[in-house]
Design a protein around this nucleic acid. Structure first.
Lengths: 248, 248
DNA sequence: CGCCGTGTTGACTATTCTCAACCCAGGTGG
DNA sequence: CCACCTGGGTTGAGAATAGTCAACACGGCG
């Protein structure tokens, strides 16, 4: 998969700091406390699960490198990917809900996750209200993305839906430096795209062909190129505001 | 609309306290601080908007009475309802994102909203880490609901989708006392149901008929009755865990 | 070499949408 | 009091979108 070259381009020591700085500059003390809390760095292979639906929450996972997703499996076996995780993103701030995971987290590309222990989260949020707000902010951004996805599957046709996803992922990758000109990695299989968009794999294939035919994308060897981002955004009714990225 | 009788049954002074107590008991000081922060109580008529997409955030809205929704409108004019708001629910904890609303909030039934000023939110979260966690928890529950909705529109057919929505709303209404036996208010038009489920109004109508034919629901005069909740839950692959309600 | 996962294609089916008409109840103005 | 209007709800017919099943191509890898 040629796209692998594009992936490890996020050079900041801890991409979480970079992400939170989109909200507010953190004091050096806060930065240090947060960095120190990121222990247990663990490599995850492509398509390996980090934590499964139903398991007790282990702490807060932070993606340092790679690309991952969160998904739910229905009783009938079908799978829905409910969000993507880009370096700097947090999962399961839900430690607060002392229950079990209501969804799974799995790697897409080979990745590195750090874990913040529940007690460390407790301590951080007791001690640093500003940091707490920054973390909270990040969950609110996530929420905004979820809302936009609902709009997508609810109101957009297959073509716009897929275009919208590509725009979103391109913007998110670019915001963490994981892009190259108008290209970024797109290590998803067509089946996974379908599980994201609520489409069958066959229909994904045909929709991709249509996007290619309209010269809005090329996708090959795990590399997505958007030669006409504006055109694609127009087609998809994409407006990046909901991503709350400063660096646009 | 006969369902109106069912609506004002939430008798607790501030349903927000009731809701947060699902997470953790709040100290009486925390309770008082939170109650004091709820100022500017404002009645909202049915179908009146509380705040519109694009407007600057005014503070945190708390629904005290009634039933409301959050929705987004696309450039092409279509509308998607992205969540429902029952008494005790908070909106726009996103004051932290000092931007504009990326969605609108509108009443469904006649409602009462309180507003917590941005500064009051700041103060509360500076002073009470436990309370902050409780508020944060509530946004995480919201997030879990959004994820479940994505699964619904992505993977479930019209029948299960609608059944799932009815189960969810029944559970949420019941958790705040807004139910009567196996019935609750359902003051949504078929068009609004469609805008929630990503279906046309016509198809909503036919799907409702099918649910009725299977004796899983009755819906009439704004009152929804679920005579066979287990059956409906089975059909819809509904599992209430994601709602994180203690009182089930 | 042969297998397996992924992508591609065709033919057929199912689901859902759109358009248009019609019904009914409640509210309004004459 | 009635005629009218309006906003939901309902129905039918035909079209569009998306799903299913089955076959095949291709490349990587044991």
């Amino acid at each position: 998969m040629g796209g692998a070259r594009l992936l490890p381009q996020c050079h900041m020591a801890n991409p979480l700091l970079r992400k939170l700085s989109n909200f507010r500059a953190l004091s050096s003390e806060e930065q240090r406390a947060l960095t120190d809390a990121c222990t247990d760095i663990r490599p995850i292979a492509a398509r390996e699960d980090v934590i499964l639906q139903g398991q007790p929450t282990a702490g807060v996972h932070v993606l340092l490198e790679g690309f991952a997703c969160r998904y739910k499996v229905l009783e009938n076996g079908r799978r829905q990917i409910v969000s993507y995780v880009v370096p700097g993103d947090l999962c399961d701030l839900r430690v607060f809900i002392h229950g079990r995971m209501d969804h799974s987290i799995g790697g897409i590309s080979p990745s590195k996750f750090a874990l913040i222990a529940p007690q460390a989260v407790q301590d951080l949020t007791d001690r640093y209200p500003q940091l707490t707000r920054a973390l909270w902010w990040s969950t609110l951004v996530e929420e905004a993305i979820l809302r936009e996805w609902i709009v997508g599957v609810g109101q957009r046709g297959a073509l716009e839906r897929m275009g919208h996803l590509f725009c979103e992922l391109f913007f998110r990758f670019r915001a963490v430096g994981m892009h190259y000109g108008t290209s970024c990695a797109m290590p998803l299989t067509q089946l996974e795209l379908g599980e994201t968009l609520g489409l069958s794999a066959v229909h994904v294939n045909r929709t991709l062909q249509e996007l290619r035919r309209q010269h809005l994308i090329t996708l090959e060897g795990g590399v997505l190129t958007l030669p006409d981002l504006d055109g694609l955004a127009r087609l998809s009714l994409f407006n990046p505001d909901y991503l709350h990225l400063n660096s646009a």
